[in-house]
């Protein structure tokens, strides 16, 4: 299955609620204030946020005027265009080799699951993968990673519960070098982004990577749960302050969540949107594609 059909499958429900609402507003009627009000409702309902919604609507007003669009139904492609434009600002480049991907995010967004899926994906692509279980805090986190590692048949570097995560990362870099690995995936402990001590820990991991593995392309990828609301912005902001994020991925888009905050993120941050998680099996991870993403939700 291609990206579109998989995403479409995964996001059927998303599309249903979002698309159904849109159907009622993109009618043959003339554009009026009621139309914009309805559109605002739809956009805010998908977690796009008040500020970005206002930006989108202003932009739509302008483009409608410029293109002399009078009917609401003709607005639909303009709206799509605006959303695709925003989401296309930072296209992810192909991953280099060797590369390190440190995966971070708040608790419960699906970091370990995403790493498991990535391990499988990269192995299928013929890459050599090493995993670092640097979540030494959550009970049984490294067990969970090991299950995924066994499924993908890749090496996982672990240590005891409570050990300094930076030490695990150090060991994993040595293992990655020894094995000539293409990708080192680092699983970090979930942390609420407003905890200074835990953010320090991430900085420390980053220092270790920069010092011990300078030849590797270093990605710092934040994972955001697709059901998150406006707090997504705050999460990315504070992680970005701590370690200068390079990538963002979104998980759990197989529910009825819309992940609208992604549009705000694309608008306000210099981050490549890399992957979309749409289910629990190893294959349910897709490369992000702006146009198809917008097509799937509109």
């Amino acid at each position: 299955m291609g990206f579109f059909s998989r995403l479409f499958e995964g996001m059927k429900k998303t599309k249903k609620s979002f698309g159904e609402k849109l159907k009622y507003i993109f009618t043959g009627n003339d554009i009026d204030e009621d139309f914009y009000e309805e559109l605002e409702f739809v956009l805010v309902s998908s977690d796009i946020g008040v500020e970005t919604t206002e930006y989108i609507i202003d932009e739509l007003r302008e483009r409608a005027k410029k293109n002399k669009v009078k009917k609401t139904e003709d607005c639909k492609h303009l709206l799509k265009e605006i959303l695709v434009d925003i989401l296309s600002q930072n296209k992810p480049e192909k991953l280099g080799s060797p590369c390190v991907i440190m995966v971070l995010g708040v608790n419960g967004v699906g970091k370990t699951t995403t790493i498991g899926k990535l391990a499988k994906k990269f192995t299928d692509e013929g890459k050599k993968v090493v995993l670092a279980a640097a979540d030494t805090f959550r009970a049984a986190a490294s067990d969970q990673l090991e299950v995924w590692a066994n499924r993908a048949k890749v090496k996982v570097v672990t240590n005891e519960h409570g050990v300094d995560p930076a030490a695990v990362v150090y060991d994993s870099i040595q293992a990655a070098k020894a094995r000539n690995a293409d990708v080192l995936l680092i699983d970090t402990a979930g942390r609420l982004h407003n905890k200074a001590v835990l953010m320090e820990e991430l900085k420390k991991i980053s220092r270790v990577v920069n010092k011990e593995y300078p030849e590797a392309e270093y990605h710092k990828m934040v994972i955001v749960d697709g059901a998150t609301g406006q707090n997504a912005i705050s999460q990315v902001e504070l992680f970005n302050e701590a370690v200068e994020l390079t990538d963002v991925s979104i998980t759990k888009l197989d529910g009825t969540s819309k992940g609208g905050f992604l549009i705000s993120l694309a608008k306000d941050f210099d981050l490549a949107i890399r992957y979309v998680g749409v289910g629990e099996t190893a294959d349910d991870l897709l490369d992000f594609d702006p146009k198809e993403f917008v097509d799937a939700i509109l």
């Binding site: 805010v44 309902s45 998908s46 977690d47 708040v106 419960g108 749960d225 059901a227 998150t228 609301g229 406006q230 707090n231 997504a232 999460q235 529910g255 009825t256 969540s257 819309k258 609208g260 905050f261």
Partner: peptide
């Protein structure tokens, strides 16, 4: 999760 958005 208290951070859930409109989906809650």
């Amino acid at each position: 999760d208290a951070m859930t958005g409109q989906e809650a």
